[in-house]
Design a binder for these strands. Sequence first.
DNA 1: AATGAATGAGCTTTCATTCAT
DNA 2: TATGAATGAAAGCTCATTCAT
Lengths: 214, 214, 214, 214
Amino acid sequence: MSFIALSAQQTAELSQQLIDQGLIVAPESAKGRLLKSAARLFRTNGYERTTVRDLAKDIGIQSGSLFHHYPSKQEILRSVVEETILLNIETMKLSLSLNQDVRDRLYGLILCELQSILVDNGAEMAVLVYEWRGLNDENQSEILKLRDEYERLWIDVLEEAREQNLIVIPPAMLRRLLTGSISWSINWFKPDGDLSLEALAEMILSMALNTSKP
Amino acid sequence: MSFIALSAQQTAELSQQLIDQGLIVAPESAKGRLLKSAARLFRTNGYERTTVRDLAKDIGIQSGSLFHHYPSKQEILRSVVEETILLNIETMKLSLSLNQDVRDRLYGLILCELQSILVDNGAEMAVLVYEWRGLNDENQSEILKLRDEYERLWIDVLEEAREQNLIVIPPAMLRRLLTGSISWSINWFKPDGDLSLEALAEMILSMALNTSKP
Amino acid sequence: MSFIALSAQQTAELSQQLIDQGLIVAPESAKGRLLKSAARLFRTNGYERTTVRDLAKDIGIQSGSLFHHYPSKQEILRSVVEETILLNIETMKLSLSLNQDVRDRLYGLILCELQSILVDNGAEMAVLVYEWRGLNDENQSEILKLRDEYERLWIDVLEEAREQNLIVIPPAMLRRLLTGSISWSINWFKPDGDLSLEALAEMILSMALNTSKP
Amino acid sequence: MSFIALSAQQTAELSQQLIDQGLIVAPESAKGRLLKSAARLFRTNGYERTTVRDLAKDIGIQSGSLFHHYPSKQEILRSVVEETILLNIETMKLSLSLNQDVRDRLYGLILCELQSILVDNGAEMAVLVYEWRGLNDENQSEILKLRDEYERLWIDVLEEAREQNLIVIPPAMLRRLLTGSISWSINWFKPDGDLSLEALAEMILSMALNTSKP
DNA sequence: AATGAATGAGCTTTCATTCAT
DNA sequence: TATGAATGAAAGCTCATTCAT
């Protein structure tokens, strides 16, 4: 395959750019550590089952002190979700810019989403998928706008694939089926197991493309 | 396609048998209505966000009266989940007994799972998929045994398909991808929309089988 | 010692008389069994900690059925306490009528109270002593009248003892000290142990009489 | 009599020492006031009949705030009981260290226990005696160890008395009779009445010693 | 008499949030 | 910024009692 992956350096630069633009907070800052903790706990125990005391304890402060950083628990969830989408959008855009072949472009999106959901620091994505209901109505619609942008990237690539007769299922529908397959992996994938992320991505790609794996 | 679907009568008879064996409660009984309500509310709002007062109000009794039927909220969740799996196992077995062709057999499983998760009385399945963490440890392992039996049915059919070279992805892995695709449908499928359950099932089948839809 | 004890037959006749007069219920009747159960449970777990469901279960009926026999849980407690005092008063009167010597008379009272509190079917007395606060105000004052009659018997005998210089502590005060010693025995006396009820009664007598045990 | 009583200053110093060692909480602290309140209410109404709302109201906070100080109502009871025994043990040891004559030593123990149970700040002792069953099993056995140490002090003094032929009833038995007499006093003694605590202690002593009051 | 479903007030406890220090 | 005591609404659950059958 001709796929060009993102280098670690490119990923790091991207994060730094977003931090500089004020779109996401620096991970080593107090707020950053809080968000990381929150993502992990929300993912492990669920939003409701995670108390602000759990959160505070996890980063070594008192529960009351949390509210100096964020006005409410709800806002913490919103930040976790928002930052994740923002980072994912930019990462995916970068990957697309490096690859022209539609197979590679689709593979890149799959890999990116898997990485976001499965690798160590990707707890936030799981929250995005499974703690959707934890957001109140206002926040849901706000996040929805970002989500539309995110999904647009997927649909565009799938439309390309359709034009080249690589897929038979309508793009919007296929995206939904893939979303399910990819997000569900959080329930079974073991990062230290035999199966690599790349191998999993290829399986999903082969399923999507409806052709035998090369 | 040569697929033989379950008739409404067969489904009804199956439910009645399970009721007679004491494995599930009659849906028109007090307990039955409670479980139905619980499944719907748990699905809509999540287990944690559903209070016993909500539940009681929904079926028109006082909150304290709930505990006349079930000793705890947790036990209600357990019952919802357990009954769903039991019913699904038997429904799937029946469907498998009616069809010999492996494509039909797989199509039957997909349809059955979709039906369970998407049609009006399928709220329980969503709970099974998404409220897993709501169960305490003891109940999780108890339910896990039933789940193994359920998954066995899927794996067996996928093994058959593999022997006939209909699928390229290893059965256990493919099942996981399908589980995700099918269960995620709860987040977007509209029962009253243009897409029929059968059409959706066929799309998923075609994705699984890795061959063009006939 | 010249003490004349009550025979089993005399005790039985006494109970029968009270039953015939309608002052206490027959122990083998439904109500009787209920009271016996209640006394035992109240004694073991306390009035508050004993639920009507516990009570019902103990005698093998449903909790709702209890209220065909007694209008409230409170009334059950009142009956237990009332019957106990009534029976004790009569038993003590009988014992006093059989003994003239003041040492014997006092010994009889002590033995009678110990018996009431310690022997197998004497759970009611413990309730009388320890579940006093479980009674509401109205019932407390009603029972108080009976209690006065009961205490009168003690005081009269202690006055006699005082006139004969057998005791040095004022009767009213001594009665209080003895009440404590006797009732506390419920917390440590083992009916099957080495110490007999009679030996214990003698120790208490010797303590009261302020003379060495003969 | 040659009895040397504890001075108010000595008592105060003892309390301070225990506070400094972290064994009991300062009475003027939030926790201290809570324990004091709890002891009084538990004594007056019983553990079960006292609600956490009663408790909170009594010290002027909201019921939820109680749990900032103690994790459960049960733990409040445990603390009340534990602190009482600890303080009593130390007070009794101090009294014993000041008196050599066995009569005086015994008189000191009696007085100390009476004081603990009857004077204004002695509600806790009543709880210890009468709310024993309110403790759960785990806490009962924990407290039991302290209680053994407490009882050891009594038994040792009674053994001395026996060696000097001052008592005729075996020490372990006599202690039980005295426990009853002393603890029962809570049900009748009026701190503002004619009878002084010291006079009551002497009566009990004379009853125990089996000799006329000198 | 007995059942068992239902009541409804009240229980202990949880928890996001506030605020004086 | 951080603390930690306090808030107060709401949670899950208990239980004496009622009542149609």
